[in-house]
Design a binder for these strands. Structure first.
Lengths: 344, 344
DNA sequence: TGTTAGCACTCAGGTCAAACGAGTGCTAAC
DNA sequence: GTTAGCACTCGTTTGACCTGAGTGCTAACA
């Protein structure tokens, strides 16, 4: 058991050192820097065992060892110690949720910048509105031009969606207002996902002209409803890691970051609200086979779900990244509290 | 005079070749590939002259010559031949202005992707609404929560801006509608830049409660009015050019592309509606000293100004880039025409 | 039995000189 | 004015060599 413990410590030391230096770690390094009681020969034996167990790889005979993905997995699952953030970092993260800027897009941009600045990795921030869980509160049609209006939908949690609608015929603003009021009453409490259906049902019993308008509205909403935003910050950070000094690799990675679909699928960790760490192949993407992705989701008070992803080399400073994401969570809840105060 | 003409042709050949290969061009290459009537020795003499004139640089004695920025300038100003685009490219560009997607953000994203895809450079697309030239048409206040409303402004050219406003007290939706109608009438024809002022003036003569509301509105609009969007596509393209095989250089460049301010200042070519080419130091940015930036602005029918920037190495395929940007212009005008049709 | 010292061995990376070759500039002849 | 020829330059490639960090194994030690 004692041996097991020692192996464990040695493995941890190797991972720590490799995360720091990105250089294969030799037995002497460990014996000098981490386990001074043991000679390099002993470490060597242990390292050999660890390699047999699949926790270490050796790039070639006369280099040191580097941690395998399996080792990182163990590290993340069991060896992680919380790393306290500096006050500056905390302040920086907090500042993203400043009261003044309510625009989501703006918060996301700031958050992405802050996260990439604090961690030196690349940050992706996705905001989406899970429609299924939203409840319709009211709507309004705002005239823009003769036959063009803007449809505004407000949910019970206070989220607002706008979309342009092209009408078949011009409609008087006052009529639009009346219709808006009418529909708001009729649809109140309806699940956003049923809206389409509900509109068509209402259209049934109405006179020709009205029915036509409702059908137009019902037809519209489906496509444009999707108001997710996706912001990426700190792309250039990746280039400062030695693992991407090979331009071709860097290019591949960057091009993933430019493909919205891939990025979205990376951030969609199926609704779990916790922090997820995916190492190398666990990302399920060939291009990211030597990257790790840490994602975290936060539910905002208006029902929006914010997903943050931090992308870096597999030898990521997991401890620090997790601390940062926890701090983000804390800041979000602080924001809620202060808003509640405000409402009183 | 004939000599002059020959020098000119040789210079052009050198630039063409260098743009193609990124390799210093030697006298033999020119004599074989471009000027078969002349021996390499003759070319050599001419090249020597061209170097004296400042059009060519030699990296070292035994390499060929590379064009100087002065040469690129001459090339862009006088040597450019229009390069016809393939039908695929034209179709691709056209597809960005597809009728169905009116959302600006979406058009910009698609355009950025198309441009970077077609040219293999990096594309930045900025959309802004020059407020000074916009005329107010009407507005509407849409209730969201008790004390939260959305202010929607519509201009005569049909552009729509929305912004959230926090009120001091709850106001009945019907009252909001009446106020909206009232203000729309009073403010009709007002320059958007005067809106703030005009609101305050109206507030003067009104009863306490109304005056308060108007002042809140006036206070709000200034900050949030700025609805420019900025999208960048094809960042990873840059990494495929040999000039950026040095990761440090690439990183610098990428980080410029992540700094919104720098990007905006790069795209702001002071309202000229034509295509602008800036070569190396002409960009006014140290980080871009061996990049060229081609920008073009297009005024959209709703008053928005769209600015496109293509960023690549100084040995850019200027001819092709200009053809692409011209095609974009053409597509935009086609879009207008088809919209006019539709309106009939 | 676990630990350690010692030693032979491996192998990437750096250094150095030589060979190579693409290119130039100059000169002399056409 | 053009061109062939030639000496010269200089970055790049090649290969031999050395170095040093690291390993695995063995034998001795506690």
């Amino acid at each position: 058991m004692e041996i097991l413990d020692r192996k464990y410590r040695i493995l941890q030391a190797i991972i720590d050192d490799y995360i720091l230096t990105a250089l294969p770690v030799g037995s002497r390094t460990i014996s000098r820097k981490y386990e001074q009681k043991l000679s390099s020969a002993t470490i060597r034996n242990e390292m050999s065992d660890l390699e047999d167990l699949g926790y270490l790889d050796s790039p070639h005979t006369s280099a040191g060892r580097i941690p395998s993905n399996k080792a990182y997995r163990l590290y993340v699952d069991q060896m992680l110690q919380p790393i306290p953030l500096s006050l500056e970092d905390v302040a920086y993260i907090r500042s993203c949720f400043d009261q003044r800027s309510r625009q989501i897009e703006q918060i996301s941009t700031r958050l992405a910048r802050a996260l990439s600045g604090v961690t030196h990795y690349t940050a992706a921030v996705m905001t989406r509105m899970p429609r299924e869980e939203q409840i319709f509160s009211h709507m309004q049609l705002v005239p823009v031009a003769d036959r063009r209006v803007i449809l505004i939908l407000v949910t019970e949690s206070g989220a607002v969606t706008q979309m342009p609608v092209e009408l078949d015929a011009a409609i008087d603003p006052d009529v639009l207002y009346t219709v808006s009021k009418f529909l708001s009453q009729r649809l109140a409490g309806c699940a956003m996902s049923r809206l389409h259906q509900a509109l068509l049902e209402i259209a049934e019993g109405e006179p020709e002209e009205m029915s036509k308008l409702l059908k137009t509205l019902a037809a519209q909403d489906d496509d444009n409803m999707d108001t997710g935003s996706l912001v990426v910050g700190g792309r250039s950070n990746l280039l400062s890691f030695p693992e991407y000094s090979d331009v071709e690799k860097a290019r591949n990675l960057l091009s993933v970051l430019e493909t919205k679909d891939k990025l979205v699928s990376l951030l969609n960790t199926h609704g779990e609200m916790e922090i997820t760490v995916r190492i190398g192949p666990e990302t399920g993407m060939e291009e990211l086979k030597d990257c790790s992705v840490v994602t975290a989701s936060y539910r905002m008070r208006d029902g929006r779900v914010n997903t943050i992803g931090l992308i870096g080399p597999t030898r990521m400073q997991y401890g620090r990244v997790l601390s940062v994401l926890n701090q983000v969570g804390r800041s979000i809840y602080e924001l809620f509290d202060s808003q509640d105060d405000e409402q009183k």
